[in-house]
Design a protein around this nucleic acid. Structure first.
Lengths: 202, 202
DNA sequence: CGTTCACACTAGCGCTTGCTTGGTTACCTC
DNA sequence: GAGGTAACCAAGCAAGCGCTAGTGTGAACG
């Protein structure tokens, strides 16, 4: 019985589980389906995970961890002006949603299924990820690039991004980067003249 | 065995079912839980609905129907400029989400659980609702009020609105109308140079 | 009065669920 | 070659699931 460590085998199983959770949802994914996808019998599954919820926790941890890594790398690699950083974060978010796809989607949509104790352990990962967003949004607000309440803007932007998993077709004409750029363009104050709209909100 | 008609009793049961579906999700809501909430035994439930999925279908139909009614009324009651109409649609959307709450939320999040045949019957309702949105967005684009691709803008806006059910606290300081106004303000091309009219909505 | 009908009940069937148990294999280390 | 260990399997249990069958009510109607 493994508890929290990450053997290579367990990592692979987690990746497969994420795929099924995205397709079917956590509740409709049975341990027998998971086992079959992994090429083992259902009983063997409980050698790697204590119970079904621990599989979900592992998937969500993996997804959030990955999102954090990709976002940090994106911020490191991009230029240092507010618009570029905002664009980089939006692109990174969609990248985790659609290329790494599975785990991050599960993290977004099945969070509630976790026991409070388990989600408490993961919340620091999530907080770190959200902190990145808040910093970028704050910079964009301070630069007059966008306008509004910092709390609401970040929620709206993340909502618009997260909802893409409901309608986006990866085989369609648009790339995830196109989506990210369009969203950033949509919310940016089209400044024909620069400067004075440094709106300090209360 | 009722099939599609809507007796008053069935309507009430549908309302109660929606409440549970929002709280627990469709899969985790058992027929015994539904029956208890309705004050009857689980067997009696199947006098009103053919099976569990028909309950979900009834809830979703109710939710979409209601959203359509509220949106139409909002458009009728508001002034006839693109900004007012956009604001009215956003407000109406959040109104269905949070006051009528239950059914519309189920319609958004449990759509996939429906059999294709059942969802085909409901798709015309959904199409009608989306048509309202597309018309309003098109007007706003034509008026230069917002900018971007009509398809993407509507998806992003609806995504931002729908995602509110994940974080909005009805007991908090903000009203749903506040949220709607902030979102509209966020995406509007602010070519009026005087001002950060932030808290000043309506 | 008898018939009908909407509505509810009791009882439980057949199946699936998450999970446990006891044992087997293959490999590593000393 | 003895001992340990990670990985797996066959078999199945207890609980819960959606749903059905058969019956009993009281009100409405002729």
């Amino acid at each position: 019985m493994n508890v929290m460590n990450a053997s290579p085998r367990r990592k692979e199983l987690t990746r497969l589980a994420a795929q099924l959770f995205v397709q079917e949802g956590f509740d409709r994914t049975t341990v027998r389906m998971l086992a079959q996808e992994m090429g083992i019998k259902s009983g063997s599954l409980f050698h790697h995970f204590k119970d079904k919820k621990e599989i979900l926790a592992a998937v969500i941890e993996e997804g959030t961890h990955n999102a954090l890594l990709i976002a940090r790398r994106a911020l490191d690699d991009c230029e240092d002006d507010p618009e570029a950083r905002l664009r980089a974060m939006a692109r990174a978010h969609l990248e985790t949603l659609f290329t790494d796809r599975n785990a991050h989607v599960v993290a977004l949509f099945e969070w509630r299924r976790l026991a409070p104790a388990a989600s408490a352990h993961l919340s620091h990962l999530r907080d770190a990820y959200e902190a990145l967003w808040v910093a970028v949004i704050d910079d964009a607000l301070a630069a007059g690039l966008i306008h509004g309440d910092r709390f609401l803007v970040s929620r709206f932007v993340l909502g618009a991004l997260n909802w893409t998993v409901r309608w986006y077709d990866p085989d369609g004409p648009r790339t995830p980067d196109d989506l990210a750029d369009e969203l950033v363009g949509m919310i940016m104050a089209r400044q024909s003249e620069q400067g004075d709209s440094l709106a300090a909100h209360d």
